[in-house]
Amino acid sequence: MPEEEDNLILRAVEGDPAAFGDLYDRYHPQIYRFIYLKIGRREESEDLTHQVFLSAWEHVREYTHRGHPFGSWLYRIARNSVIDHYRSRRDVLPLEEMDGEMFRSEENIEEAAALSMLLADVREALRKLKPDHQDIIILRFVEELSVREAAHALGRSEGAVKLLQHRAMRELQKHLRQPVTILGDPELTTEQPWK
């Protein structure tokens, strides 16, 4: 972890709002993404993300820095917030349409459209998974956390995380409508038939 972040965390724990603001800037995008991929609605995801940071600020004095990334702690709060959100809202949320602006950086419009469709499929499949499987896929493959970081964020052992990741990817592939492959897994490189 960079020394700068250690310093920010220590200052935030001592109650420095500016330091916490810097941590907010640093971690807001990934916490928002984590929630958005699980919730699927922009406004609700933004509100929940805000609540996560408010809660983090209220409890930051209790935070004990043990060398793990600050983000792991935030992910834990985010996971609990999402669970609470689903408890309070039992109705099924409709899938939001894929935001076209998200991929406007793609040079080729046709490629961007095709990619957008594929990603919509992935997001839909992702949201059909169990919460644990969603968490591990987002943390490991979207946010690209290490096994150790993901294990700390999920409160599991590294071995358990590897096993969970394997199962989650298998489940994800089952729910995809379009043929995709999984790297590094010879059993899963066969393309899925169209459903």
């Binding site: 991929l37 995801s45 991929f103």
Partner: peptide, 8 residues
């Protein structure tokens, strides 16, 4: 990895 482009 493409999903990392999602931003608020």
């Amino acid at each position: 990895r493409h999903l990392k482009k999602i931003e608020s």
